[in-house]
């Protein structure tokens, strides 16, 4: 695994070096290792020395496309490494007119899914020392020995039901595509929540959202939250109060979710970023499911030419609320 990993990082580095050092791009958005082997953090590479730090491993979960919102202000042309979800995030920004396609070079990385440190700990029964990966299996070294697990069981929640691991948009695809994956449990929790009575469901969300610190990590990590000014910060009128009250928790999370209806690419960065593990993706998935049921299957971010259902009008659009 270690060797294979070095090989693939080299391949990525080779592809982007030419462009960065040759001046085709001014900046490369990639990943580098953090303090720990289970963390890969954003890298803003401008030089050969920067590229030495480049990482591409099982922990590159951070969605880099969002950084384009800022970086395109200072750079004419930016290269970005994009996994499947990152590429859909790019399309999201493109559709929202937040980025210009000709200013960006996308290096596509078909993604095996990223691993969750907490799952490694759970599986290992303690702090893991290192892992090796082989053929869909992960061997976790712990103080007392080794534990073996299926890679699929160690994925971040956001990666578990990923249907499109391959980038939907790219200028250069760096590895062979994995193909569309069959996902069976994407809406499982949503269906369970739908089964509940309204009171039960309200209670469920009231409890889950009660942990919300209002740190807005979900919003800041989100590729559909690209408004220059969020309703949360608007002073007049003041929509969002700061009290830690159920009404304020619902105000923030429901308005945010509704704002993403038909626009959420289901990358799960909101949930991954949440420091208190609120199952935010279920809110978004409920709305994805509703959109699919009302307007036909729609996968946000797959095709930038296809307008999100709620941003367009067809005479035969269903009017479920008025029909009932």
């Amino acid at each position: 695994m270690a060797e294979r990993n070095v090989e693939s990082v080299n391949k990525v580095r080779e592809a982007v070096s030419q462009d960065l050092l040759g001046g085709r791009i001014d900046l490369l958005l990639g990943w580098e290792k953090g303090h720990y082997w289970w963390q890969s953090r954003p890298l803003f590479a401008r030089s050969e020395a920067d590229l030495e730090k480049l990482a591409w491993d099982s922990f590159c979960a951070v969605n880099l496309s969002r950084y384009l919102l800022e970086e395109l202000k200072d750079h004419d042309k930016v290269g970005v490494l994009v996994k499947g979800c990152d590429a859909r995030a790019f399309n999201r920004l493109l559709q929202d007119n937040m980025v210009r396609r000709e200013q960006v070079i996308l290096y596509g990385l078909p993604c095996p899914g990223m691993l969750d440190y907490n799952r490694l700990v759970e599986k290992a029964g303690g702090a893991p020392l290192e892992i090796t990966e082989e053929n869909g299996r992960v061997i976790i070294k712990v103080g007392s020995g080794e534990q073996e697990a299926q890679r699929d069981d160690l994925l971040l929640d956001k990666c578990k039901d990923c249907r499109y691991p391959d980038p939907a948009v790219y200028d250069q695809l760096l590895f062979s595509p994995q193909g569309e994956k069959e996902v069976t449990e994407r809406f499982k929790t949503v269906e369970e929540l739908e089964e509940m009575s309204a009171e039960e469901r309200f209670g469920y969300w009231e409890k889950e959202l009660s942990r919300c610190l209002r740190c807005y990590a979900c919003r800041q990590a989100c590729p559909f939250c690209s408004c220059r000014e969020c309703f949360v910060e608007q002073e007049n009128p003041r929509w969002q109060g700061r009290a830690y009250q159920p009404s304020e928790n619902f105000m923030f999370h429901l308005v945010r979710a509704y704002h993403g209806t038909g626009r959420c690419i289901d990358c799960g960065e909101c949930e991954r970023s949440c420091p208190v593990d609120i199952p935010l993706q279920e809110l978004n998935r409920k709305l994805i499911k509703d959109i699919n049921e009302l307007y036909g299957d729609y996968e946000a971010g797959l095709d930038p030419e296809q307008e999100p259902p709620l941003l367009t009008y067809r005479p035969d659009d269903p009017a479920a609320f008025s029909e009932k």
Binding site: R41, P42, F44, R66, Y67, L213, R214, C215, Y216, A217, R219, Q220, A221, G241, R242, A243, Q245, E248, S273, P275
Partner: peptide
């Protein structure tokens, strides 16, 4: 000029931090 680049601008660090102590006053 470099260090801040990756910051998303959320408040996680300040809210989980035991030594951050800034507050605001508001009415509900």
């Amino acid at each position: 000029d470099e260090l801040y680049k990756s910051c998303l601008g959320c408040g996680v660090c300040t809210y989980v931090c035991p030594t951050c102590y800034c507050f605001d006053v508001e009415d509900f």
